[in-house]
Design a binder for these strands. Structure first.
Lengths: 229, 229
DNA sequence: AATTGTATGTTGAAATTTCAACAAAAGGTC
DNA sequence: GACCTTTTGTTGAAATTTCAACATACAATT
């Protein structure tokens, strides 16, 4: 009993985050908490740099970011890292593999900082439970919307990395960030090496290009803070 | 009345294709035909090279390939074409934009050859009709699965284009094709320029690389037929 | 404050890609 | 078959990226 109480208290700590999660759109507080229990949601904490999901792991679970942030990365057979993206609360990750009922994930997820993550076995979402929670329908609908949105995000990333030069990729990325943040001043979630792995270019060449753009008066930057002029 | 009859006859012409479509998995013949009418499915024919969907068009409809094939492409502000993928029967396209309820599509779709395509207004799928067709649930579920599969496909494409050299991209692509076809001999759905635009490299450099691989005895090829040795 | 480690910037040489221009081969049309 | 168009292959020069190596700045730890 105490255990249940603790669980609820814990979930309530992140209730605001969970309510913002696209997966739970349109579901009230009470129902949400009940539903999470019904779905067998489990929360885990990961230290910085820890592997949340390793390539080849089972792809049964959907991850929901509660705090911190993680990077989704792909590793080449000869060690080249490619960063697919960055996930922050209240976003969801691994949902595509879970929904497609792929056995093993072909990528890995690493915590960028101390992070709390909720996991839900996707089969509990897909195969409506017999308690007949009225919200399963809504949940599936939300999951679908989220998959569609991820799809579009992948298209957007492809648009950036399809550029041929480091400069074009960088500018396409920075313009996208500016647009997203709604300001010409913004921070990016990557350090130089990570940005290079995201844009699929060389770190040194990327640094050189940033310096060049600065000299040309196109942008200002220091560390991960950028301003487009 | 005659019109209705014609429609049914037409649909029956492609019944086999439609039954294979991931969107209609688990739905019987009779139900499928009734459902298509209920969903207001419309079929159009496009000549080779014709634009099926232009960038900026409304993104309300899902396309289902009945015959022929189309290419999904993105155009750069300075005219660089990037090919996202190729769609053949009985696959579906544009579903991500329709499901995410994006207003305008950010890419265009062109017929590679004479093609027949069925369109369904996605809102008819998402917002269950009041006739209460028993299969709406199944349809939504199928759509979700399909979105997840597309997601994974986009990941796979990113894995290919994330390679740094023309040779690596090409080999990654050919290996994927070989795996998909289950044979070391296979045809690709692209001519050289299209393959270059898909892999995001120069056509001339791609041709040169293919010749080189041939000289090195790694593959054989003529036109779009390849054999990995 | 000194030390250590990590992140970023810089540079020049080597490798690769892009670009432009043309040659050769294949396909379609009359 | 002759002609025209499109596709594919080839080539060398210019541009760009990668790579390796080092310099500098910054952060954390003792």
């Amino acid at each position: 009993m105490l255990k249940f109480q603790q669980k609820v208290v814990f979930m309530e700590k992140y209730l605001e985050t969970l309510k913002m999660c696209p997966l739970f759109y349109g579901i009230g507080d009470e129902d949400l908490l009940r539903m999470l229990t019904c779905l067998g949601a489990k929360t885990e904490t990961f230290d910085k740099k820890y592997t949340v999901v390793a390539e080849g792991n089972s792809a049964r679970h959907i991850g929901i970011m509660l705090s911190g942030s993680v990077s989704v990365t792909q590793m080449d057979y000869d060690g080249n890292r490619s960063i697919v993206g960055n996930v922050v609360p209240p976003e969801v990750f691994m949902e595509a593999f879970a929904c497609a009922e792929v056995r093993k994930v072909p990528l890995s997820v690493v915590a960028n900082e101390e992070s709390e993550i909720m996991f839900i076995d996707c089969s509990h979402i897909l195969h409506t439970c017999h308690n007949n929670c009225g919200f399963h329908q809504q949940l599936i609908f939300n999951l679908m919307k989220n998959l569609a949105a991820k799809n579009i995000e992948l298209h957007r990333k492809a648009e950036i990395t399809s550029k041929r030069t480091t400069r074009e990729k960088l500018m396409a990325y920075l313009n996208m960030c500016a647009k997203k943040s709604g300001s010409r001043v913004f921070e990016i979630p990557f350090d130089r090496q990570e940005l290079a792995d995201y844009l699929q270019v060389e770190r040194s060449g990327l640094s050189a290009e940033i310096s060049k753009l600065r000299r040309e008066g196109i942008l200002q930057s220091e560390r991960n803070r950028f301003e487009l002029l």
